[in-house]
C-alpha cells in the first residue's frame, strides 16, 4: 500500500482538477505520445494503438478518482500499489499533453531544469505550468512511497 500525507488548499485542487479534466478531454481517443509501432503489420498496429488508448484511459480514470475524492488534500491518502502505478502513469500522460498543448514555448532545458519564471508567462500558461508542476510533485511523492531509493533524484 502507498500511504501519503497531503495537505492542499481546496481552491488549488479545484483549479488543478479543471486543468486535468481539460487535458483528459483532449486525450479522448488519443494518446499523449504518438507511439512508434512495427511498420509491416496493419492489424498489429490497430490492436497496439487500441490497447494503449484503453490502458491510458484506465489510468486516467484512477487519477480523476483520486483528485475528485472529497478527502484528497485533507491528510492521509492511501492507495493500493496498482492504483498508485496507474496514477503516476496518468500524471505522465497529462504532463506530456500539457507540454504539447500549452507549454511548447518552453524549451526542453527549461522544463528539465525547472528554470521557468512562472510570473513571466501569460496567465493561461501559468495555470498549465502550475498543473504540470503539481502533477510532477504528486508523482514524486508516490514514487518515493513505491520505491524509497527514488528519493535520491
Amino acid at each position: 500500500m502507498v500511504n501519503l500525507s497531503l495537505f492542499l488548499d481546496s481552491h488549488l485542487i479545484v483549479a488543478m482538477l479543471e486543468l486535468v479534466k481539460a487535458a483528459t478531454e483532449s486525450l479522448n481517443g488519443h494518446l499523449a505520445v504518438e507511439p512508434q509501432m512495427p511498420e509491416d503489420d496493419e492489424d498489429l498496429q490497430m490492436a497496439w494503438q487500441a490497447d494503449l488508448i484503453e490502458a491510458l484511459h484506465y489510468d486516467i480514470d484512477y487519477l480523476l478518482l483520486v483528485l475528485r475524492d472529497h478527502d484528497f488534500g485533507k491528510g492521509e491518502l492511501i492507495m493500493e500499489e496498482g492504483v498508485a502505478e496507474s496514477v503516476v502513469r496518468a500524471c505522465s500522460a497529462i504532463r506530456l499533453k500539457l507540454r504539447e498543448s500549452a507549454l511548447l514555448k518552453l524549451t526542453d532545458d527549461q522544463l528539465e531544469n525547472a528554470e521557468v519564471d512562472i510570473l513571466s508567462l501569460p496567465t493561461d500558461m501559468q495555470q498549465c505550468y502550475a498543473c504540470y508542476l503539481f502533477l510532477a510533485s504528486l508523482q514524486s511523492l508516490i514514487l518515493i512511497e513505491l520505491d524509497p531509493s527514488c528519493e535520491e533524484f
Binding site: 506530456l96 514514487l143 518515493i144 527514488c150
Partner: peptide, 16 residues
C-alpha cells in the same frame, strides 16, 4: 529522451 518524465519515474519504470 523526453523533457517531461522525471528521472525517478524513468528509473522506476526500468525496474518494473
Amino acid at each position: 529522451n523526453d523533457p517531461v518524465n522525471l528521472m525517478s519515474y524513468v528509473v522506476t519504470v526500468f525496474k518494473r
